[in-house]
Write a protein that binds this DNA or RNA. Structure first.
Length: 299
DNA sequence: CGAATTTGACCCTA
DNA sequence: TAGGGTCAAATTCG
């Protein structure tokens, strides 16, 4: 599909993308600097960096929102979509060509375990969204773990469903699996999409199923765009609760490190991180799971 | 004490 | 039949 934007708007769009990219680079530099500073002088808390960083994130958020608004009245080009989507240096976003939701919902085995009569059903649908990342990402929704398995690849795979499955009937589920050791790489696979109305941070979450958000996020794959909704709001705009990973059984918790390091985990997002909120949302287990990330950065 | 997580068992699919 | 997805009781956490 080719986006036929008027020249003026196209130029505006390009300019916004350029600014967005530069702000991203600036954030990257800041985060790296913060990391280095922290390693050198642990405990020096009176830096202006947090303020600057927050500012950059707000700028990024502004760029993103502007682009969203700009594109809400037009089909967005792939170019634009890619540029305003999660900037993730070390990850890739996969939007596999899949059957539409309509088609998958016709499957008798769709996500409907124990439907009514107590029969055991398991999903056999294609994932709606997949992401590989070296960091533990957050999508803005709360998940409840319902199982984990050791796969053949010797890594644990964790199974999560939306916390609001019971109270709101939300069918969204996801799987988180480590797929690589060095460097650590995690694959998060989403099935179905959220129908619940309780994102953790509504301020920064674009309505997941709004035309603008949908068109932007799904423009990676034309096949998805018309029917498939993104399982959660934009990665760019999602809140930043961490992504639980495989369980690591050890006795020391990393929870108290979060307020210091969460930006390392989430700096890929073009939004401010709600420190207090997200810190309190971590369970001890999940906090421990960050150990890998800390180790990755040498802490 | 309610909510979340863990974990072994059960069950489905290929 | 093996591998993987889900259930649900037990356990842990806040």
């Amino acid at each position: 599909m080719e986006n036929q934007l008027p020249n003026g708007k196209k130029a505006l769009e390009e300019e916004l993308i350029r600014g967005h990219g530069m702000a991203n680079q600036l954030l990257e530099v800041l985060v790296q600097d913060k990391l280095n500073t922290h390693l050198e002088e642990e405990g020096s808390s009176k830096s202006v960096l947090p303020f600057v960083e927050d500012l950059v994130r707000k700028v990024l958020c502004s760029f993103t929102n502007t682009l969203l608004i700009l594109n809400s009245n037009n089909d967005v080009s792939n170019e634009v979509a890619a540029s305003i989507t999660l900037r993730d240096v070390s990850s890739s976003i996969n939007c596999p060509k899949l059957q539409s939701v309509d088609e998958t919902c016709k499957s008798p085995n769709i996500l409907n375990p124990k439907s009514g009569s107590g029969c055991y059903k398991r999903k056999s649908i294609a994932p709606t969204w997949k992401k590989d990342s070296s960091i533990l990402i957050e999508d803005g929704y709360t998940w409840r773990k319902y199982g984990q398995k050791m796969t053949q690849s010797k890594y644990l795979r964790s199974y999560y469903r939306c916390t609001h499955k019971n109270d709101q009937g939300c069918q969204a589920i996801k799987q988180v699996q480590r797929i690589q050791d060095n460097p650590p790489l995690y694959r998060t696979t989403y099935y179905s999409h959220h129908t619940c109305k309780s994102p953790m941070n509504p301020e920064i979450i674009v309505e997941p199923f709004s035309p603008s958000a949908s068109s932007i996020l799904l423009s990676f794959d034309n096949n998805l765009q018309s029917k498939q909704e993104n399982p959660f709001s934009s990665s760019i705009l999602a809140s930043t609760k961490h992504e639980p990973q495989e369980v690591i059984h050890n006795e020391h918790s990393a929870q108290n490190k979060l307020s210091t390091f969460e930006n390392l985990l989430f700096y890929d997002y073009d939004i401010p991180f709600d420190y207090s909120r997200n810190a309190t949302l971590l369970s001890s287990t999940e906090a421990v799971q960050f150990e890998n990330v800390y180790e990755q950065y040498g802490f």
